[in-house]
Amino acid sequence: MMDKPWNNRAWLFVVPVLVVVLFSSLIPMMTVVNYSVQDTMGQNNFFWNGVAWFQGLLDPTSDIGGRFASALVRNLIFSIVILCLELPLGIAVALCIPKQGWKVGASLVLIALPLLIPWTVVGTIWQIFARQDIGLLGAALNAIGIHYNDTQDPTSAWATIVIMDVWHWTGMIALLSYAGLKAIPDAFYQAARIDGASRWSVFRNIELPKLQKVLVIAVLLRFMESFMIYTEPSVVTGGGPGEATSFLSLDLVKIALGQVDLGNAAAMSIVYYLITLTICYVFFTIMTQLDQRKGV
């Protein structure tokens, strides 16, 4: 075996990164871990509580467990619903973007506009838009006889949040898909025309497979973001009516800051984080396996 040079001073080069990670991740994380295994009666007196917070959280029959489970289910349904809407819609929009001329730039700018609006502003816009007295959407729907009240009716609240998210984020999927479509050489379309392939077949056998990588990334981004959604529903519905739109992050903030229930909030943070991490890992594995299978 070869003798490798050994010099412990090399560790010095890693120190800056370690310091950053320490303050940005490890210390805050450990604080949360600390809270999740302790209880307090106030006056900054903490005592050991073991895994009791976690047991309660993961037991759907308990108070907090039921609350967590329903927020989780709500959040998953929300993510799936918006993906099912935004993905086909985004691809459809991308397919409709003009091929050349000034219209290309104009379309791209218009599609990108909602992405440039700060999230609290998006929430505020839709909160006003949905109002029954002065909001264009709310007032108009009620005027034509459709019962719509996003502060009292869960269906209305859900519809508002979902449509708002679709409005806000379909553009991103459209832009990603557009970039993917642009990368397909014209020869593929020519070959399909010579074969006499139908428009559907061109989409199914050329465009969709060529978009696959871009779409996997789009799904990943949209899923993670929608799974952690906080700002917009917090502004529009505040999680209501009742608990109808209380997603995980909204509930977490309520428990931590509203009820100052630090133990439950800390345990919930950690479980929430682990769920996100797991889904991320699963996505990543699927992505890399697809690549390997295709031999790319």
Binding site: P185, A187, A191, I194, D195, G196, N205, I206, L208, K210
Partner: peptide, 28 residues
């Protein structure tokens, strides 16, 4: 063009990415 009896091969390797070689050859 689809009613004419034409076949074309390009400089780029143009095949249907999601179909097997067999299905690609069979596609026309």
């Amino acid at each position: 063009v689809r009613r004419r009896s034409v076949a074309m091969v390009y400089q780029q390797f143009v095949n249907y990415p999601s179909l097997t070689v067999y299905e690609n050859i069979a596609s026309p």
